[in-house]
Nucleic acid binder design. Structure first.
Lengths: 138, 138
DNA sequence: TATTGTTATACTCTATAACTATA
DNA sequence: TATAGTTATAGAGTATAACAATA
């Protein structure tokens, strides 16, 4: 079906990436989705849970479950928001950053395979086109 | 993180598509992944379960669970392979094809949104780049 | 009234390993 | 020995709705 070529390739690309990411992170006891949380926090720390939900394209329950696990392991901290009593500010800890660096290292083969058959210029194009898809789906 | 732009956009694009697909199919009691099974079978009927696993980028357990459900609803049939006693040939039923047509119809808004901000020529490029990613990840 | 987050619940998908029956 | 499929089990992610606290 012509109309489902992009959806099916999008699916295959994501699922393969997700599966290989989980496989490479298994020895750390971290899932691909937990890694996404850490990635977002490593880039912009001190955001509230709801913001994390948006950026991770996730939902409140899932993010909460992940944060509880990550907090138990001392990788993140959830602190009360100083001005909004409802919100919780999430921060990655120093230990979280250290482990995150190891995870990024362990994922090098996956990153390399992902764009192995795509030249630099095309990678930019791919990213831009995906960004437009995301924008349209919001 | 520069290296995670494509992965994160790939993730957001897939998850949004998947979520919206599930939402639009909910009233039929069919999941996005079950739809993928039907799509594959509607295109090339009479393949064995293992082949379905490969094409759906899935695993034996997941595919089996889906097929059992779809078979209970009379949408597919699993018959013994005439020459290989281990294998099962999966076929979509006439009722399966009818419902599949309705599902495709119900998903029109999702398909449209997906490429809403991408001209025809760019859609071809996107598909080709995704195909290369899939190829590299195998 | 609307929003942030939690709790409870149920279901789907995923991964592993052990098993059978066939090849 | 290897392969197709099943069974059992456990865990992770998802969706919904009801709720408390706060804005």
């Amino acid at each position: 079906m012509e109309a489902y070529k992009i959806p099916m390739n999008l699916r295959a690309a994501y699922l393969s990436m997700h599966r290989q990411t989980n496989a490479h992170l298994a020895r750390f006891g971290v899932t691909a989705d937990q890694f996404v949380c850490l990635l977002i926090l490593a880039e912009e720390d001190g955001i509230i849970q709801q913001e994390l939900v948006k950026r991770a394209t996730s939902d409140p329950n899932t993010i909460r479950a992940m944060l509880v696990l990550l907090e138990k392991r001392g990788l993140v901290v959830r602190a009360p928001h100083p001005r909004d009593g409802r919100a919780r500010i999430v921060t990655i800890t120093e230990e979280g950053r250290q482990i995150f660096a190891e995870l990024v290292s362990a994922l090098e083969p996956v990153r390399n395979r992902l764009t192995a058959q795509i030249p630099e210029a095309d990678a930019k194009t791919l990213n831009e086109l995906l960004r437009r898809v995301v924008e349209a789906m919001e």
